[in-house]
Design a protein around this nucleic acid. Structure first.
Lengths: 260, 260
DNA sequence: CGTAAATTTGATACGTTTCAACCCTCGTGG
DNA sequence: CCACGAGGGTTGAAACGTATCAAATTTACG
């Protein structure tokens, strides 16, 4: 029988260290395979209720009793937090394989709204059933915890960005994050379609929609991104590394490429 | 035997709804009791390794292999994230009953540094042993998940603050959060001692130390906080609600008490 | 095709950072 | 005992970055 120990120790934690990856698997990154396996296992073991959603549809609302957690099968979703005095803020973006609703575990009610920004599909799982499955299957519990851990870490990454980067660099960082999310799901990263308005992006990044627009124009100007001919919602990233390094550049005012 | 279902449904999720609380219990808030019980259960069931730490001591460092999670028994700790290009940012503050190290679960290495800002005590628990205990004790698993959920929610609360509040209001919000943390641990909230420098606070709040200083001076000026005669690190909050409502005030420029 | 929404761009106002000076406290060593 | 220096804190003035306000333009959609 599988034990916690055997599951914890010999897993692929040192990504890229040992054994060479066969060429076909290299095309689909490890993260993408992990997501696929997880979705398959959930689908088989727990019979999630699948829901199709369209842009603007709400998956759950703050204050609603917490029963389900959700897994994104396709589409993109925004998580919105609101304060008592009416301020509201996009605090996370979720893609295929990400979970929605963890914030409800703490006190039995969701603490945020989850809204589709696109057509997609979410799978609803009863949290009690998920827990029961985890009690029977240690590997599922480990995976769940890894995903909760990732949720924590991602939030902190966002805080790092908001706290240390200027507007232009935040937008560049946002695009890099988005591209990394796509890369982790086996999709091309040289061309991304933003399905959010400038206002939504700005809210997520803690700045105004005008500043987002100006930052994008600036990034086009210095050549690290391009708009496609299909409109200003489609962005080409000819060199992801160049885009990434211009985030860095903003940190130090005396750098060759002033980003602000 | 206890099942997931019986544990999930009848718990005190609707805080303050039903049954009146006996006067003695009211002195120690529910959250404080929860923390005490949790620490006791961990102490009895898992024999954590206890460590005394002093201000500046590191609990774990980013990149170190993930073996332990830690629970704060006393003191306060800061969690620091650093980016590849050298930016670094305090992304969380932890008090008694909070966990440290969840960020290591995802890929087997810690993603942040945890540093004591004060003398205190942390308990180290092997994550594999904790998991094993959770497999045997569903209630422990539920508690663990609730705390991970809280970690996610708290990070998002911080994002909301950083994204929607001006400097003065962020500092006010920070003080309210700190007071709330104390309240949840049964301590008085009308007098709090900041054990962090202005620079640390500023880093945590995404602003400069001078702005923190100015904001505190402003809050003193409008009367919602006072400095004690023992120094500028001790802050009195005569009316926590007044402090809280001046956060709100900053959101709308046309409000009676302009906070910026 | 027409209207509403979204986006871009400019000019100005505002808030925060930056740079600088000064103060205070505390621990050390002459 | 006091001089001294280091670290932390406060405050001011100027520079900087972003928000705000206001067009003009483009896009989306019934």
């Amino acid at each position: 029988m599988l034990t916690i120990d055997t599951l914890l120790s010999p897993r692929c934690h040192a990504a890229g260290a040992g054994m060479p990856v066969p060429p076909l698997a290299a095309a689909l990154p490890a993260a993408s395979q992990r997501i696929g396996r997880m979705l398959q296992r959930l689908s088989e073991g727990l019979a999630p209720k699948r829901s199709l959603v369209h842009a603007g549809d709400t998956v759950y609302s703050a204050g609603t009793p917490f029963i389900h957690v959700y897994v994104v099968n396709s589409g993109t979703f925004k998580v919105v937090n609101a304060s008592a005095d009416g301020r509201c803020q996009v605090v996370d973006l979720q893609f295929r394989g990400d979970w929605l609703g963890f914030d409800g575990i703490a006190d039995g009610r969701y603490a945020s709204d989850a809204v589709a920004t696109d057509t997609g599909e979410v799978w609803a799982l009863r949290y009690d059933e998920l827990l029961q499955a985890c009690m029977d299957d240690a590997e599922m519990l480990l995976d769940l915890h890894r995903d909760m851990s990732r949720a924590i870490t991602r939030g902190r990454g966002a805080l790092l960005s908001r706290g240390t980067l200027r507007a232009n660099a935040r937008v560049a960082d946002f695009l890099c994050d988005w591209a990394a999310a796509l890369a982790g799901r086996g999709q091309r990263t040289d061309q991304i379609r933003l399905r959010m308005t400038r206002a939504e992006i700005g809210n997520y990044l803690g700045m105004t929609l005008e500043s987002v627009s100006r930052a994008l124009s600036y990034l086009v100007c210095i050549g690290v991104i391009r708009f496609t001919e299909r409109g200003r919602r489609d962005i080409e990233i000819p060199d992801l590394q160049a885009l990434g390094s211009c985030i860095h550049a903003a940190g130090r005012p005396d750098d060759p490429l002033p980003l602000a």
